[in-house]
């Protein structure tokens, strides 16, 4: 998830962002390694399988496969298992090493850092609304409408898509919903606080 110093605008939850986030750049190595754990493969075969399973809207570039494989080779996580006649790097067959298997296991058992999806701007707006005597609930309704616009698109896409699409869309939907629930609770608490302070 990209982050800016101001936080993350809801607009960032676009379909393309979520699709691109399916496999973040830094985990391509681990993903290819995981695919190799299932059995040795040629470079072109690795790319094709990756694209099929994880790449949908953004296929891997061949160059990315080679640079990743040479890094994994250098680190001893894969080895060359054979070369098909005809030469070229895509003709190399790679196999995972024991160290590679350990590495995949460690990656899979490591939880991902929870991302701060929410946005300080929303918080700032709620506080400012209350401070200036405006209605935080109307701000919430407007924000919800904006979120819902995208959530409807995601819900429709989920209906038509395969299971992988469904999972990606669900992830986005739950996060969008969480944003709103947080905002709602924050507005309610601040409202309460504002009342108490004014008393």
């Amino acid at each position: 998830m990209p982050q800016s110093p101001e936080g993350i605008r809801p607009a960032i939850y676009t379909l393309s962002v979520y699709t691109q986030c399916r496999v973040a750049d830094m985990s391509i190595g681990h993903t290819l390694l995981g695919l190799l754990e299932a059995g040795p493969r040629h470079g072109y075969d690795l790319k094709r399988t990756f694209d099929e399973k994880f790449g949908h809207d953004r296929p891997l570039a061949y160059g990315q496969v080679y640079s990743t494989m040479s890094r994994l080779l250098k680190n001893g996580l894969v080895e060359v298992d054979g070369v098909e006649s005809g030469g070229g790097p895509e003709r190399k067959r790679y196999a995972i090493t024991d160290a590679g298997i350990t590495d995949v296991g460690a990656w899979l058992s490591q939880p991902e850092k929870p991302e701060p999806y929410l946005h300080s701007t929303l918080y700032t707006k709620v506080v400012l609304a209350l401070l200036t005597g405006r209605r935080a609930d109307e701000l919430l309704d407007t924000q919800r409408a904006e979120h819902l616009r995208l959530m409807r698109i995601l819900t429709q896409r989920k209906r038509k898509g395969d299971i992988a699409d469904q999972l990606v869309c669900d992830h986005a939907l739950f996060h969008l919903e969480a944003d709103l629930r947080w905002l709602e609770l924050t507005a309610a608490r601040l409202d309460q606080l504002a009342r108490e302070v004014r008393r």
Binding site: D137, D141, R144, A145, H147, L148, M151, R152, L154, T155, L173, F174, L176, E177, L180, R181
Partner: peptide, 16 residues
């Protein structure tokens, strides 16, 4: 009151 459920709708109204 669930936004994920409301996302199945075509549009929403809010009652306050």
């Amino acid at each position: 009151h669930e936004t994920r459920v409301a996302a199945y709708s075509d549009r929403e109204i809010v009652v306050r």
